[in-house]
Design a protein around this nucleic acid. Structure first.
Length: 934
RNA sequence: ACGGACGUGGCGGAAUUGGUAGACGCGCUGGACUUAGGAUCCAGUGCCGCAAGGCGUGGGGGUUCGAGUCCCCCCGUCCGUACCA
């Protein structure tokens, strides 16, 4: 009777470790399969019950594929550089390496307790110098590369130099330049290039390198003392910590991901990733087709980007972003004071302020007029903060008749509005329809929008006033962080020019510093290091961002011990892409984009033979916590508001006082104190109650609220507790049973009993009432075989669809039915044990051994199902009248439609219901339904 | 505002892709066994109704012999993105 999960799980976890059961070799004689989990950042809080969800799913797939004969790579490691460890280091002086190691050890313990089939010999840690040596190496490859738009791939910078030697450059040359070029690159002849000194050449090359340093607008987060990439900023505040972020221009390392914009977009179509992730990436890349248009101003010009060149005859003014470099130039002396004042205010408004009030229109006239390229009319040039400096050219041609933002601006400042499309009511709003007909005067009149766009671009190009252009929203990625706990950037400076550290100097290890804080001069922490230089030349002091290591770690798992290369060609050719990648959807536009970018780059430079890292991606849903929110009625007569929440074990200890549970911040609502928000009164259901010791018995009401599981919300469920009580196999099954993998769902510990009971019942099939192992060799009966094969079929198919909740349900059905049949036959129980092994490996391994096997069940061949056991010879037809089921009639499967119809109509009960009338129609769907229409 | 996902019992969720809605589990009700049960087993459990029967997959319409599933309109929830020219 006793299913002793504790003993069994401990025994097998030790045994697996001893035997090296999950060790994987790069074995070319067997097909490889690569199942990867997004590796965790080892935080101090440890794992909660939501974290392993994806790991359990991928572990099931990995184990299943192993049974199916694949050589499965299923590794785990740690994304171990990161801010929390550094923040902790700043507070305590403890080196982040130490806390990181401690946290990783704790993670390992927790992961081991769940019984994963990870090959820990392949563990990687991004903060380990043997790992980041290669992160640095890849950075140097990026530094050593430029993107050739003609061949559409990255090439060695030496080839560009050769090209300059020979042909020079015409400047802003689209045959050599790609991406997010913020600076003007002048042209030069081959002779001039050859005459350039080293410094000039290097400065020019910075505009082409895929890893480059430039003065760039960055997201500066003063509270964190570092810059952030665009995907690390949400709603104008840092994603981590929620600190305000401002735009700032500073010297900054960036990666030219924008060169890859089109390929990153196109590649999505080849991937088996969720539509939502692909869509998020498409939006983030933000491709738009249109044209650049030059508006002359005196001897100068302003260039705008528009997706609607068809509306050119509706241009009423031009608006520049406040940060636009030409604002100063185009401002007339008499408007100078006003414009400068406006620009000053607009620039200093934080991103957040700007976003918070998009409804408010503001702007100022520069006093200048541009010439319309088609009509020659004067077009006033304005400055307005609704125009973003970072998109397009930072300037727009305003068409208030066709663009609602321009319309609002025009209305606000009383500027003219020209109707551009037939049927537009420009008094009310702009007409943004893309199927309209152009009505503004000029050669586009009468054309439909798409034709007009084509025609307008042709004309612009003909007269040299502009050209068709594809624009991307994607910006180059800020790569330097003014922080300590990250990979040092392997660059030194000679004459202020960055040079690559020789490969032989890698890894450039993190130096010791006295404090993990910026220097008094505001230099990053690395500037504190003694002798932070290379042959007397200063080394770079910023470090790489969190996503550097994770952009390529999947390759390192293939060959983690390699000292000569990031991974050997043999290993890479064997494992190739990740077959199944499981992780959270929050990485949609960060990690997953950089991951693809680096893969494409390594492909271009010939280091790997594929240009997408993961064929299939699945996002596991979040497991939410249930928070018990308290409403506490309280008398404030003594002027003190203090509430105490006590854990259950202290219920009977009057006066017990636990500071951790003291709540002293409450919000007034509906005449009661509804305690929520941060620092809220929350407690887990059934484990604690609220008590108020100062005021006698208060009125207490607990309302369950489903929300994110987090320490700060007092709703965390620790897997260790679950395992202690029910075992890892029950935890694994229950996490899968909760619902579809991709879906978010609340955790309810109460429900776990069901899966625990299931395992006990499964165990009991193999044991007699005295818990003696008892399995017979007898021939199985037909019903027993049917249950087995139905289960094998369902489970095999469901694993393929990653539908684990329904697999678990099928196992439960099987065990219930076999229990009813008192089945104790090897021919049934043995295959069933293999099928259960991916889900509940410990109990399966134990029963496998008891069945007499010396070798681990992980080596067992997956049992295939045989349809012959599933065929029925009769079917109980639901007989419905006008679609409503009224009775059931059983007929042999072999019966033809006509025979079924005849027999149904002959049935007395059917006759009774027909009341002698002839049915209008009878539909017979074999093995499905009979519907009688009356 | 736009994009994506979704809406089924008291709860988590099934439904062979147009064919018996509510599998499986939790919870609940009743019973058995028991010194006891937060153990186990049996029965029941969508709603209304004594019943016959009726109503039921967010709401409304449609297609169909038949709709949770397909089409149109609306409502609601969650997640992205957010003045992207």
């Amino acid at each position: 009777m006793a299913y002793e999960h504790k003993d069994i799980e401990k025994k097998w976890q030790e045994e697996w470790r001893k035997r090296g059961t999950y060790r994987v070799n790069n074995d070319p004689s067997r097909p490889g399969y690569y199942v990867l989990d997004m590796f965790p950042y080892p935080s101090g809080a440890g794992l909660h019950v939501g974290h392993p969800l994806g790991y359990i799913a991928s572990d099931i797939v990995a184990r299943y594929k192993r049974h199916c004969g694949f050589n499965v790579l299923h590794p785990m490691g740690y994304d171990s550089f990161g801010l929390p460890a550094e923040q902790y280091a700043i507070q305590t002086g403890q080196h982040p390496a130490k806390t990181t190691a401690e946290n990783a050890a704790r993670y390992r313990q927790q992961l081991d307790a769940i019984g994963f089939s990870f090959d820990w010999d392949r563990e990687v840690r991004t903060s380990d110098p043997t790992f980041y040596k290669w992160t640095q190496w890849i950075f140097l490859q990026l530094f050593d590369s430029w993107y050739d738009p003609k061949t559409d791939k990255a090439r060695p910078i030496s080839e560009l130099v050769a090209c300059f030697q020979e042909k020079g450059s015409i400047g802003q040359d689209t045959s050599t330049l790609t991406g997010d070029i913020e600076e003007f690159v002048g042209g030069f002849t081959a002779e001039e290039w050859r005459s350039f000194d080293e410094r000039t050449r290097q400065l020019v090359l910075q505009h082409f390198r895929l890893a480059y340093i430039s003065d760039a607008w960055v997201n500066w987060c003063p509270a964190m003392g570092t810059v952030l990439a665009n995907d690390e900023v949400k709603d104008g505040v840092s994603e981590r910590g929620g600190h305000p972020v401002e735009r700032k221009r500073m010297k900054q390392w960036s990666l030219r991901i924008t060169s890859y914009a089109q390929r990153l977009l196109d590649g999505l179509d080849t991937l088996d990733w969720s539509e939502s992730i692909k869509e998020a990436q498409r939006n983030w890349i933000g491709r738009s087709e249109g044209a650049t248009v030059r508006f002359p101003i005196g001897n100068d010009f302003v260039e705008v980007f528009t997706t609607r060149p068809d509306t050119l005859f509706g241009v009423c003014f031009i608006t520049l972003a406040p940060e636009h470099v030409l604002v100063g130039k185009f401002t007339t002396p008499e408007r100078k004071a006003e414009v400068e004042a406006y620009v000053e205010i607009a620039k200093n408004r934080s991103e957040r302020d700007r976003m918070a009030d998009v409804a408010h229109v503001s702007g100022v006239f520069t006093g200048s007029f541009a010439k319309h390229p088609f009509t020659g009319a004067d077009v006033p040039v304005w400055v307005g903060d609704y125009v973003l400096a970072g998109y397009g050219t930072g300037a727009v041609m305003a068409v208030p008749g066709g663009d609602q933002r321009d319309w609002r601006f025009a209305k606000h400042f009383g500027l003219p509005i020209i109707a551009v499309t037939e049927g537009a009511d420009i008094e009310k709003e702009a007409d943004e329809r893309k199927d309209a007909t152009i009505c503004s005067d000029g050669f586009l009149k009468g054309l439909k929008v798409p034709q007009a766009i084509k025609r307008a671009i042709e004309e612009l190009e003909r007269i040299g006033a502009g050209q068709g252009r594809i624009n991307f929203r994607l910006r180059d990625a800020a790569f330097g962080r003014q922080r300590y706990w990250g990979e040092p950037i392997p660059i030194y400076y000679k004459d202020d020019i960055p040079y690559a550290l020789p490969e032989s100097e890698l890894p450039l290890e993190l130096p010791a510093v006295d404090k993990f804080l910026p220097t008094a001069e505001g230099e990053p922490p690395l500037a504190r290091a003694a002798n932070w230089n290379y042959q007397g030349h200063p080394l770079e002091t910023t470090t790489m961002p969190g996503w550097a290591g994770s952009s390529w770690y999947f390759l390192r798992y293939m060959d983690p011990g390699n000292n000569d290369r990031f991974a050997s060609p043999e290993a890479i050719n064997y494992w190739k892409q990740v077959d199944l990648y499981v992780g959270g959807s929050e990485h949609a536009t960060g990690h997953l984009l950089y991951f693809r970018f680096w893969t494409k780059f390594l492909f271009d430079r010939g280091w790997i033979p594929f240009d997408e890292p993961a064929k299939k991606l699945v996002n596991q849903g979040m497991i939410q916590g249930i928070s018990m929110m308290a409403r506490v009625a309280v008398d404030r007569s003594n002027g003190v508001e203090r509430y105490l929440v006590l854990p259950k074990e202290k219920h009977d200890t009057p006066g017990a006082f636990d500071r951790n549970y003291l709540i002293d911040q409450v919000n007034f609502k509906e005449g009661r104190y509804f305690i929520n928000e941060e620092g809220a009164a929350r407690t887990r259901a059934k484990e604690a109650i609220f008590r108020e010791f100062h005021l006698g018995a208060p009125e207490v009401e607990l309302t369950p609220v489903v929300e994110k599981m987090s320490k700060s919300k007092f709703n965390v469920v620790n897997p260790d507790d679950i395992i202690a009580k029910y075992g890892a196999d029950t935890l694994r099954l229950y996490e899968m049973f909760l619902g579809p993998l991709e879906q978010s769902k609340p955790w309810d510990t109460n429900g776990i009993e069901g899966t625990f009971r299931f395992l006990r019942k499964f165990w009991n099939l193999f044991h007699d009432p005295n818990d003696a192992f008892h399995v017979r060799e007898a021939e199985p009966t037909k019903p027993e075989l049917k249950i087995l094969h139905a289960t094998l079929k369902k489970v095999s198919e469901d694993i393929g669809k990653l539908s684990f909740n329904t697999s678990v349900a099928q196992f439960m059905i099987a065990v219930n039915e076999l229990g009813t049949l008192k089945c104790d036959k090897r021919a049934i129980l043995e295959p069933l044990t293999i099928a259960l092994a991916p889900f509940a490996p410990h109990i399966a391994e134990e029963l496998w051994q008891r069945l007499g096997h010396a070798e681990s069940i992980t080596a067992a061949i997956w049992p295939t199902w045989d349809e012959q056991y599933l065929v029925e010879d009769s079917f109980s037809y639901p007989i419905s009248f006008n679609g409503k089921t009224r009775l059931q009639l059983e007929f042999p499967i072999a019966l033809s439609k006509e025979e079924v119809e005849a027999q149904v109509l002959a049935n007395p009960e059917v006759q009774l219901r027909l009341e002698g009338k002839a049915p209008k129609k009878v539909i017979v769907v074999p093995k499905r339904i009979v519907n009688i229409v009356v």
